[in-house]
């Protein structure tokens, strides 16, 4: 990435490695590094992704350790266990990769991932992630606002929604051999949600390119909604006039709505959403409306009955 006007700060200088790896992991890395140094090229190190921290999107809260961010995932394309994605996602091939932008746009286009990586300046933003299963993390993502991409393709007047479609390839995504969800996975946002500055088209985390299990090579992050709204390993972005029906809406219409905004007042059909366990914490903490982003996004939903549009 080239943004010459910015003071170049390496992510590693902002977040010292030993702060986000715990001691044991750090020792393993050190041991691994000494072995890896004998081999041609590092085997364990992910590719770096440079970005400047966006000061407007930092949190005072402690970041979730790297090993938990990359080891405890819901990504059913690789299995339903939390450790499955880290274990099985190595079969995903993220190069070459293209993202087709189509539907209600004046300039439909298929982008190569390299092109998308250069489309706008990469920012590091620390966001809360609240899973619908009542656990949460704090993650330093790298990307740029989705709006940057949307502007390039010029949506038509009919574009009211944006749909994100994940790769559908059981050879690369062994979890897709199960019928636990309808594949391909898809998610959607209303246009104003997609254009909101918080909505991040995401390519990396913790100073690296996204690990496969976190939705490489390109995903969306919508921090005020439950995690499943943030589609991973996206191959298609479609602008539509009508509200898309997402994979989880198909799986459980009474349990998963289109909006799925984090809301302690609106319980999941089977469990409470009032509290959450921050990964690493012992006890639960209260869940915040819109995951703590109410001041920025509550306005999008003024006048809407959030019990009805859950």
């Amino acid at each position: 990435m080239r943004h010459k006007n910015n003071t170049r700060i390496l992510p590693s200088e902002i977040t010292p490695r030993e702060h986000y790896y715990d001691r044991r992991r750090f020792m393993q890395l050190a041991a691994g590094a000494s072995i890896a140094s004998l081999l041609p090229g590092p085997l364990w190190a992910a590719d770096k992704l440079e970005a400047s921290p966006n000061k407007a999107y930092q949190l005072a809260e402690e970041k979730t350790p790297y090993k938990d961010v990359t080891g405890y995932n819901n990504f059913y394309e690789f299995g339903t266990g939390k450790g499955d994605p880290a274990q099985y996602a190595h079969t995903l091939k993220t190069r070459p990769w293209t993202v087709t932008v189509e539907g209600e746009v004046h300039k439909p286009k298929t982008f190569a991932i390299e092109e998308l990586l250069k489309l706008a300046a990469m920012e590091e933003r620390v966001y809360r992630l609240r899973c619908v299963e009542a656990w949460s993390m704090v993650i330093p993502w790298i990307g740029y606002p989705l709006s940057e991409l949307v502007k390039q393709v010029e949506p038509t007047g009919n574009a009211k929604f944006v749909e994100f479609i994940t790769l559908d390839d059981p050879m690369q995504m062994p979890g897709q051999r199960s019928t636990v969800l309808e594949w391909p996975y898809n998610e959607g946002l209303r246009m104003d949600e997609a254009m909101h500055p918080l909505t991040l088209l995401t390519f990396g985390l913790y100073g690296e390119m996204l690990p496969n299990q976190n939705g490489a090579p390109i995903r969306i992050v919508v921090p005020w909604k439950y995690g499943f709204k943030s589609a991973k390993s996206i191959v298609k972005i479609r602008f539509t006039e009508h509200q898309p029906v997402s994979a989880w809406m198909k799986a459980g219409p009474s349990e998963y709505g289109f909006y799925s905004n984090v809301n302690p007042e609106v319980d999941h059909a089977r469990w409470s959403q009032a509290k959450e366990r921050r990964i690493g914490d012992f006890f639960k903490r209260p869940t915040l409306p819109f995951n703590g982003y109410a001041d920025q996004v509550a306005g999008l939903y003024s006048g809407m009955d959030l019990q009805k549009y859950f």
Partner: peptide, 10 residues
């Protein structure tokens, strides 16, 4: 030994 994963209570 911290071997219960990211969400030990779960």
């Amino acid at each position: 030994t911290d071997g219960l994963g990211a969400n030990p209570i779960e």
